[in-house]
């Protein structure tokens, strides 16, 4: 980065460290923090959406839909994450490519499955093999988000399903007594009240999601743990900045980052809890009501 960094072998002390910490590899490390934050910011709402859909399906009065909802939560919750992350993105990628293959190359006669190979016509590849590297990286990132959303959505579905059942039955009965249809009582009475019951479970999930990001590297996305391991590993003189095993320091840095993320999350979640308790038929809501009197 600096002009003085051209020949690292002549540097010493702080100069060496300054050059070392601004090497191209370290820049990629710093960027990966943004990747992780972006992943969390996109995955959390996506997983909540999957969870909400799953919970609604599991409560449905239509039998097949109910079975789909229950099967989704039971299956995903029962399968180890790492198996899921090795399987889902590859399966989804091949699924998308197969669909595109059927649409774009109807004249293609070769089989798609040749032994263990998966071969679609070049026009159906996702992304096209001619597209630049950033397109491949974005696609990999999108697959990662989808895989995370599917897995964490299943857990969220179970939490939301429980929360929907935790809303006092009397509330629904009152809604029915006012002549609301099931749809109206669901959206106007049940959903606004269930969040406070779902929040402890969802906040747990959020914490687990924060810690699950190293699984990203299985999907080819280079996250902070990958870079910390890569940068911290001992380097022989084949590298410009040789050093012994420094993983301890890199992982200490990550520890601080994750603890800070946890601290911020806790602060936000406790504010959210206070806000959602407002006017609810719960102990916290009751306490708020009394304090306001």
């Amino acid at each position: 980065m600096f002009a003085s960094c051209a020949d690292p072998s002549t540097l010493e002390g702080l100069n060496w460290l300054a050059c070392y910490l601004t090497s191209g590899k370290h820049m990629a490390f710093y960027q990966s923090f943004l990747v992780v934050l972006a992943l969390l910011a996109i995955t959390a709402p996506a997983a909540l959406l999957f969870g909400f859909g799953g919970a609604m399906a599991a409560r449905s009065r239509i039998w097949p839909l109910r079975m789909v909802g229950r099967a989704y939560t039971a299956m995903v919750r029962g399968i180890p994450d790492i198996v899921f992350f090795l399987f889902v993105p590859v399966a989804m990628d091949q699924g998308f490519e197969w669909l595109r293959h059927k649409v774009k190359c109807p004249d293609w006669t070769d089989p798609v499955r040749q032994g263990s190979d998966f071969v679609v016509c070049p026009a159906a590849k996702l992304p096209l093999s001619t597209s630049p590297q950033w397109a491949h990286e974005t696609y990999g990132f999108a697959l990662a988000v989808l895989a995370f959303a599917v897995v964490f959505g299943a857990f969220a579905a179970n939490v939301l399903y429980g929360a929907m059942r935790a809303v006092p039955r009397a509330q629904i009965e009152t809604a029915e007594a006012y002549g609301m249809t099931p749809r109206q009582s669901f959206w106007r009475v049940l959903v606004p009240q269930m969040w406070i019951y779902a929040l402890p479970g969802l906040s747990n999930l959020w914490m687990i999601l924060i810690k699950a990001t190293p699984l990203l590297f299985l999907l080819g996305v280079q996250d902070i743990v990958y870079w910390a391991r890569e940068l911290g590993g001992s380097k022989t003189s084949i590298f410009a900045y040789p050093h012994p095993d420094w993983r301890l320091y890199y992982f200490l840095g990550l520890l601080i980052f994750y603890l800070m993320l946890t601290r911020v999350s806790e602060a936000v979640l406790s504010r959210l809890t206070a806000r959602l308790s407002h006017g609810q038929a719960t102990l916290a809501g009751e306490a708020q009501r009394k304090a306001a009197q």
């Binding site: 690292p8 090497s23 191209g24 590899k25 820049m27 990629a28 890569e230 022989t236 084949i238 590298f239 410009a240 900045y241």
Partner: peptide, 10 residues
């Protein structure tokens, strides 16, 4: 290394 590795330029 030395077969393949990420150098300091990334």
């Amino acid at each position: 290394p030395p077969y393949n590795f990420i150098n300091d330029a990334g």
